[in-house]
Computed example of a mutant assay.
Amino acid sequence: MMIEPSAAIQAGGILHLLWAGFHLRFPRMFRWQSALAGLDPVNQGVMRVMNLCLVFQFLACGSLSLLHADALAATPLGRAVCAGLASFWLLRLGLQFTHFRALALRSLVLDVFFAATCAAYALPVLLAA
């Protein structure tokens, strides 16, 4: 059974919405109130702003994927967007191994989700090739 490219993109959209929700939990999950207290105000702000920008980006990618999956799968521009998203998640997966304890259970679970998000966007590109 072969998955349809637009269905893969919609799955990627759902994963992006889940990533947004996950990142919204970062301040509490990582105890930023105390963990970031040792940083100067600029670096504290950088952490918070980068995280909020990622949340926005994940919401935008998720919405785009859910509302325009057919166009993303069927057009050269859409497949280029998919290739960019697949590349982002492949990079994120690779960075997991250089910046975190990649074999810890938590990391392995994240690895699966990084790979799944990458695959959701790589599939339409590979099927069109």
Rank of each mutant, 00 (worst) to 15 (best):
M1G: 14
M1W: 07
M2G: 05
M2H: 10
I3D: 04
E4Y: 07
P5S: 08
A7H: 10
Q10C: 07
Q10P: 06
G13P: 04
I14M: 08
W19T: 00
A20I: 06
A20H: 07
G21P: 01
F22T: 05
L24S: 01
R25W: 13
R25G: 05
P27Q: 03
P27M: 09
R28I: 12
F30C: 11
W32I: 05
W32G: 04
S34W: 02
G38V: 14
P41D: 10
Q44H: 08
G45Y: 07
V49P: 00
L54R: 08
F56M: 03
F56E: 02
F56T: 08
Q57C: 02
A60N: 09
G62F: 09
G62N: 06
L66K: 06
L66Y: 06
L67R: 10
H68F: 15
A74V: 00
A74K: 04
A74T: 09
P76I: 01
V81F: 11
V81N: 00
V81S: 00
A83P: 11
F88Q: 08
L93R: 03
L95S: 07
Q96S: 07
Q96R: 09
F97I: 05
L105F: 11
L105E: 05
L108M: 13
L110P: 03
D111K: 01
F114P: 07
F114D: 03
A115V: 04
T117Q: 02
C118T: 04
A120R: 05
A120N: 09
Y121T: 01
A122V: 09
L123N: 00
P124E: 07
V125M: 10
V125W: 12
L126T: 09
L126E: 00
L127D: 00
A128I: 13
A128H: 14
